[in-house]
């Protein structure tokens, strides 16, 4: 088994044994959806743009709880040194940590998104395959940026406060594109109308994944 699979398996097993990250994200996501729902007058409907905004604010804010955990887990007893001492490449290490983040955020979304449709109306439930595609592309972007910055902040004493400060400014362009595409999906627009935005999301994910591969060695070294 390659280093990538071993690290992925170890981290998912750790989460399965003590599901702190996923439970934290789901609970926080539920709380946000309920609080935001209270702000909407009873009986009134929200626009697809507002719905998409609520959904992605909930996902991005709650996902930070999971993103900070994957690297900080390696901080205890300097386990990161143990990984760096092994012949596993830094690229495999980054890819594994990023994949863990994608999986954890996806797991949380499996609970958050259905609750969103329950609370805000199933009128938005138009194209499940396209929504899944957008969710996956957005997750890859979040995970790439989140993994890189959680590696940077894991070495600091206030990593959980520092990570959002570095993470959110960089994901704002991705969030705004994701909200735009999601609102178009909620409106039932044709794929051709928003396909160019999907390419931008793919490019965003590729750029930050590439940056992670290039920078992780400098970030976790010394």
């Amino acid at each position: 088994m390659s280093g990538f699979w071993l690290i992925l398996q170890k981290d998912l097993y750790a989460e399965f044994r003590r599901p702190e990250s996923v439970i934290g994200m789901v609970f926080f996501g539920f709380l946000l959806l309920v609080i935001l729902n209270l702000a909407i007058p009873l009986g009134s409907e929200i626009s697809p743009e507002t719905g998409a905004g609520i959904l992605w604010v909930t996902i991005t804010v709650s996902s930070i709880l999971g993103l900070s955990r994957t690297m900080s887990r390696e901080r205890e007893n300097r386990c990161m040194d143990g990984l760096l001492l092994s012949p596993v490449s830094v690229e495999a290490l980054f890819a594994a940590k990023m994949a863990v983040n994608v999986v954890l955020v996806l797991l949380a979304e499996c609970s958050i998104i259905p609750l969103f449709f329950i609370l805000y109306g199933d009128g938005f439930f138009t194209s499940l395959p396209m929504l899944v595609l957008v969710v996956v592309l957005a997750n890859v972007g979040f995970a790439a940026i989140g993994t890189l910055f959680s590696a940077i902040t894991a070495g600091t004493s206030r990593n959980e406060a520092l990570l959002p400060l570095l993470f959110y400014p960089l994901v704002i362009p991705l969030i705004s594109i994701t909200v735009k595409v999601t609102s178009m999906i909620f409106q039932g627009a044709a794929v051709a109308d928003y396909s160019s935005w999907l390419y931008v999301m793919i490019a965003y994910g590729c750029i930050f994944t590439g940056l992670g591969f290039l920078l992780l060695d400098h970030v976790v070294g010394e």
């Binding site: 170890k10 044994r17 003590r18 007893n77 092994s86």
Partner: peptide
């Protein structure tokens, strides 16, 4: 390498830790 940090995962058992590191090699 042996240092004053154990480089071991607290949430894993002794066997799991060693199997994990042995698998990395």
């Amino acid at each position: 390498v042996i240092s004053h940090h154990s480089l071991l995962y607290d949430h894993m058992t002794a066997l799991e830790n060693l199997v994990f590191y042995a698998s990395l090699y």
